[in-house]
Design a binder for these strands. Sequence first.
DNA 1: AATGCTTGTAAAGAGTCTTTATAAAGTCGC
DNA 2: GCGACTTTATAAAGACTCTTTACAAGCATT
Lengths: 398, 398
Amino acid sequence: MRTLEKATHQQTRAYNSQLVLRTVYDRSTVSRSDIARATGLTRTSVSDLVAELIGSGLVEEVGRGPSTGGKAPILLQVAPRAREVIGVDLDGEAFTGLRVDLRGRVLHAAERSLAGADGRHALGLVLDLLDELTRSSPAPLLGNGIGTPGVIEATTGTVRWAANLDWADLPLGRLVAERYETPVNVGNDSQAAALAEYTFGAAPRPDNLVVVKIGQGIGAGIILGGRLYQGDGFGAGEIGHTTVVEAGEPCRCGGLGCLETVASMRAIVGRARHLAQHHSGSALAVDPASIDEARVVAAFDERDQLATMVVEDAARQLGRALAALVGTLNVRQIRIVGSITRFGDRWLEIVRREVREHALSLIAGDTVVTFGRSGEEIVALGAAALLMTRELGLSLAR
Amino acid sequence: MRTLEKATHQQTRAYNSQLVLRTVYDRSTVSRSDIARATGLTRTSVSDLVAELIGSGLVEEVGRGPSTGGKAPILLQVAPRAREVIGVDLDGEAFTGLRVDLRGRVLHAAERSLAGADGRHALGLVLDLLDELTRSSPAPLLGNGIGTPGVIEATTGTVRWAANLDWADLPLGRLVAERYETPVNVGNDSQAAALAEYTFGAAPRPDNLVVVKIGQGIGAGIILGGRLYQGDGFGAGEIGHTTVVEAGEPCRCGGLGCLETVASMRAIVGRARHLAQHHSGSALAVDPASIDEARVVAAFDERDQLATMVVEDAARQLGRALAALVGTLNVRQIRIVGSITRFGDRWLEIVRREVREHALSLIAGDTVVTFGRSGEEIVALGAAALLMTRELGLSLAR
DNA sequence: AATGCTTGTAAAGAGTCTTTATAAAGTCGC
DNA sequence: GCGACTTTATAAAGACTCTTTACAAGCATT
C-alpha cells in the first residue's frame, strides 16, 4: 500500500535544487542562464539555487564562457572532488571496491579474493575492503554503495538471499552503516549495473532502460521513467531463474532448467566441457578441466563447430527470454553487460534476431539491443551511483 | 528522452488538491479534520482546498458525523453525479459503451454489434454509440474513454494496430475529440481493465498490480507505483504475442506459436474443435462447428478428459508466461480477468502452480494470483477510469 | 453550568517562485 | 572609439501557498 504524501514548499525547493544540480551534471559546464532556459526556472531562482549549491561545495564556477552578443556567462560545473563515494561489487569470486568521484572516475581501487571463504569470513572481507577504501579517502565521503548478486531488501540493506555467498537475511546495510556512520546502500548487482549504465552512460538518457548482466549468472536491472524499478520485494529483474527448459538441469536457486542453466557463461562453459568429450574434431576436445571461459571464447571466435553450437544455443535461449521481457515492458533500450559480451557481435546478432522473431513486431521493431559499457567495475560503479542517486538525487527523476 | 520539469507553487497546489480529492474518494465520507490527519496537511490548508473542490462541484457536504468528544465533524463526499464519464470497449465482436458516475456506477449502457463490419463501418459504429451515450447525459460530461485491443499511442489517441478491427494508424482520439469537444482518452483494453481493477477495486490499493485479460486474445495491464505503465511505445503488457511454441500455429499478429495461440479462449476452443474429431469418448465428440466457449467450459466442469487436457495445457502455458512476468517485475498482485475466468478455480490452481514452480521461489512465494472483478464491462469501466485519472487525478499518484 | 475537547475558519507569518528593475559586461555598426 | 543593443547576473518587490497562531462554534463529560 502506497502512502501518499502532501507537497510542501520545501519539497519544491529540494526538487528544483536537484533539477539544477542534475542539469549542471548532465551538461558538464553551463551558465546560470543556460540552466534557466533548460529548466524553465527564472534566472533569479537559478541564481539563488546555484548559490546554495556552491555553498555546499557541490558546484563551482570555472571561468567565463564565450559571449553570444552580451555579457559573457560564468560557467559552472559539478565540483568533481566535492564528494567521493565508495562502491563495491560482491561478486562470486572476488570482491572489488572503488572509491570514485561524482563523475564515476576511479580514484582508488582495491580487491579481496574470496577463495572459498565461507559466509562469515566473506563478511569480514567486505569490512576489510571498506576499511582500506575509507582510510584512503581524504575528501568528504558521501557513503558506501554495495552491489551483490541475489535478492536484497533495499530499504534496510538486508541480503535476503545470495547464492554465491551463502548469505540469508544478513543485515549487511545496518552493519556497514554502524561501522562507518555514513549512508549505505545495498543493492542487487544487476540493478547496480543498470544504474551505472544510466548514470555514467552517454546522454541523452532514455526514459526506460533494461540492462541485462550475464556472467556466471543472469540478472537484469530495470529503469522505468528514469528510476530504478525494484518491484514489491526488490527482486525485479531476476530473469535468470525463470524456467526455460522443462525438467532441465538443476540451478543454484534450487529450481530446474532456469535460464541461467542454459544461457549464462557458467552454463556455456559447463556445456562445452560436457559435450567436448564426444566431439573429437573440436578445438575443445581437450581435458575438460582445462576448458574455461577464455578457451570457449577463443574456440567460438575461431568458428569451432562445437563452440558455435553451444554459444548460439545459449544466445537463442536468451533472445527468447528477452523477447518476453520486451513484450512485457516495451522498453526500447536493452543493454547487455558482463563477461558474456566477450562472445561479441556474432552472439549479439543471434540474440537480436530471436528478440525480433519472438516478440510482437510492432514492439520489437523499436527495440535496440546493444552491449553496454564494458568494464569489470560496472557493478561497483553502479553501487556508487545508487548511493549518489539516493543522497544527491543525481541523474534520476524525483 | 525524458524532459524534466521545474516544480512550481501551482503544481504543489494542484497536487495537494488531488490528494484531498483522492482522500475523499477513497474513504467515501470524511471530515476536513480527517483529511488533515490522513494527508499531513494542516486543517487550514485542507479547509481551503475543500472549499475549492466544493466550488467546482466535485465535493459536497453531507451532514454531520458523530462527535468524538468535541464539535461534530461536517462530512464530505465526492459528489457522485458531479461528473459523468463515458467509457467504451471496442471488443472484437461487439462495442459496448457505458455512461458512469465517478464511482463507476453505470448510469446508461449501450451496445453495437460488429457483425462482420469492416474497418470504416466499425468507426461509424463507434461514433454512433458515443452519440447515444452523449445524448442520454444530462450532467456535465467529463469526457470519453475508449479501450480497444491493439497497440495505441496514448498521447494522440492513435490506434497503431488493432488486429480485430483491421485498423492501422487510425487517429481515433482526434476524431472523437473534434466531434464532441471533450477530452478523450484512447487506451489498450488490457491496460484499461487494469485501471478499472485498480480504481474501482477494493482498497487498500497495492503499489504494483498486473491485470491479465484473457478472452479471445491475451494482454496485460501493468500498474507500477500506482501509475499505468505503458512503455516506450505504449505497448507494455502485450504478452500475448510472445512466442512460446517453436514453429507453432499462426497468430493473427503474423507470428507463429504466440502465447495467444495456445492459452487464449480462442485457442482453447479451436484446439477442442480440432481434437474432438479424434476422441470419440469425449463430451466434445460432436459437430466441431457446434463447439463453442460454453460447451468447452461445460465439458471442463464435467471433467471431460479431452476438455481437461486442452484447458490444463493452456493453463500451464499461461502459468509459465506469468512466471517470466513475475520474475521480471516482482509484482505481488496478479489478477486475471476475461472470459477465461469461466474455467474457475481448477484452471487457476494450475496457473498458480506453474507460476510457483517456474519462477524464483523467493519471489513467486510472495505472489498472489487471483481472479479480478468479473463483469463484461471491465474494459469500458477502465476506459472511463483512464479518463477520470487523466482529468481529475483520481486514484492515481502524481 | 463549567470545563475540556474537537472542528472549522480567520489572520498573520514564512518559504519560495516570479516579476520588474538595475548593474555589469560583452558585441556590433558606424 | 563610441553609442546602441544584448546577454548575464543580482536585487527588491510581489504573488502564491503552506504553516502557525488564535478563536469561535459545537459537543461531551462532570
